[in-house]
Design a protein around this nucleic acid. Sequence first.
DNA 1: CGGGGTGTTGATTCCTATCAAACCAAGTGG
DNA 2: CCACTTGGTTTGATAGGAATCAACACCCCG
Lengths: 262, 262
Amino acid sequence: MYYTQGVDLGCDFSACQMESLNLWPFVAQGKSVAQLPRHSVLEAARRMPIFSALDDQAVELVLSRCHTIRRPAGTTLFGSGEPAERFFLILAGRVKLYKLSPRGDEQILHMYGPGITFAEAAVLSGAAYPATAEVVEDAELLAVGRTEIRRAIEANPDLAMGMLAGMSAKLREFNRLIEDLSLKDVPARLAGLLLRLAAQAGTDKFDLPQTKRELAGQIGTIPETLSRALAKLKSANLIAVKGRHIEIRNRQALSELAEGGL
Amino acid sequence: MYYTQGVDLGCDFSACQMESLNLWPFVAQGKSVAQLPRHSVLEAARRMPIFSALDDQAVELVLSRCHTIRRPAGTTLFGSGEPAERFFLILAGRVKLYKLSPRGDEQILHMYGPGITFAEAAVLSGAAYPATAEVVEDAELLAVGRTEIRRAIEANPDLAMGMLAGMSAKLREFNRLIEDLSLKDVPARLAGLLLRLAAQAGTDKFDLPQTKRELAGQIGTIPETLSRALAKLKSANLIAVKGRHIEIRNRQALSELAEGGL
DNA sequence: CGGGGTGTTGATTCCTATCAAACCAAGTGG
DNA sequence: CCACTTGGTTTGATAGGAATCAACACCCCG
C-alpha cells in the first residue's frame, strides 16, 4: 500500500491519517521530541488550528505552561466521564479512544496516530471526557491544560482572538473543501487550486510548490487523475504546463470552470 | 432545479448554499428580522460555529452589543484594505465579495446568500479586509464588531472558551465529513450516520429524525442513492427498515463497514 | 548500469449522479 | 366521497467520472 486516497487536510484534526507521517520527519527518524529544538515542537503545535494564527511568541507563551509527556503502551490517559482537564497532540505513538457499551464491551471509537489532536472540544467546553483514551503504542504527547489556556487568554484577550481567528480560517478552508468535494469534479477543483496558487504567487506564471502527489491530496484525488486533469486543462488551452511550471492562459475560463463545477 | 447535490453543512460557513433557505423559514416568509422575536435572531446566531456552543444567556450577552442592519442593493459594506472592524451574518438578501485585479477589473470571489457568515477570519485576526463587499440584493445583516467580541471575552474569559469549543466541535465534524467524502462510499457513510444516530438515541431501534432528502444531504449524496444504500444494508441484513423506523441488526458489521469504507 | 521515486498514459471497473417513471400518503377542493 | 395535487420515496436504465491496475518514460543518485 503506497497511499490510500484521501484528502490531505494539512492539519491535525484527522483520524487515520497515517500518511501525515511524512509531515513529521523527526518522528519518522525516531528522535524523541525532548531532544528536539524548541522550534520543532512549536512547529508541531502550529499545526493545530487553535494555534495556527498565533505568532511564535504567543505560541511560546502558551506552550511554556504546557509539557510534553511520554507514556508507555497500556497507559490510560483519561477515563470516560472524568472532567476534561487537558487535551493532547500526539507527537509519536498511537492512542485508542473507546467507550464501554452498556453491555460492558469495548467500543473503539478512534485510533489516532502522530499529528492528531484529540479531546479539545471536551476540554474547551468544560465538559467531561466522553470516552476513554489509552496508549496502544508507546507515545509522546503534548498536553495542553484547560486552566493553562484559560489563564493565558485571561491574561491576554488578544490571544483568544488569535485562536478564534486560526480556527475560523481553518473552518473556512474546510468548508471550501467540502463544497468542492461534494459538487465539483476534479478539473474544477484543480482550476480552483491553480487560481489560488496564482493569487498566492502574485503572477499567472508560477511553479507548483509541491510534488503532484501532494497536490493531488489537497484536492482529494490521486496523482493519475491529477495528471489527466492537467492534460485536460492544457488541451483546452486554459493553461500551459512545462514540467512543474504552470502558466495561466485563460483566467476567465478557468474561473468559470472552478465556480461552475461540471 | 429542485436541488443540487451538495453537503448540508448545517452551518453558515458555506457559500452558494441556497438550499439552506429552507432553514430560514422566516426569511422565506419575507418577514423582517427586526419584527421577529428575539429568539429567532438568537437561533440564527447560534448557527455560527463561534456561538454554537454558548448558552442562550451568553449569546444574548454578545448580541446585545451588536445590531442588525439593513442595506439596499448597491451599498458597499466594506472595502478591500480597510481595517476589519466587524463581520456579518446575512439574514436576508445577497452580498458580493470582489477584488479589483491589478488591471482594474472586478474579480468576483464569492456570492453569499442568507445564512452565510463572512469576514470573520479577517476580523478576528485583526487584519484588513482582503476584499470588498457589496450588497447586490437588499440585505438585512447581523453585524458583529471586533471590539464587541473582544470586550465580551475580556469581561468573561469563559466566553472565549465556549467560542473555541464551538469552533472546535464544528471543525471536528467537518473533518469527519471530509474524510468520509474522500474515502468512503455512500453505504459506508450511511452506516456511520446510522451508528451516530443510534448512539444519539441510545437504542439500536430508532426513527429517522429528518426526511431522507435531508439525511442524504448530510452525507453528501441524493435521496435516490440514499434509498439504494438503505436497501443494500437491509438486504445484507445489517439493518431492518420499516418506513422511517430503523433497527440495527448487526452492529459489528455496520461498524466495520463504516470504518473500512469499501 | 540498475534501482527508486515521479509523472504519464491506457484499459477496465465501479460508483453514483442523472433522468424518468411509478408509488404512496396526505391533503385539498369540488 | 372521489378526483387531483403535492411531496416524499422507491426503482430502473443510462452515462460519466474517477479509482484501480498495469505498463512505461524520466531523472537522479549510488
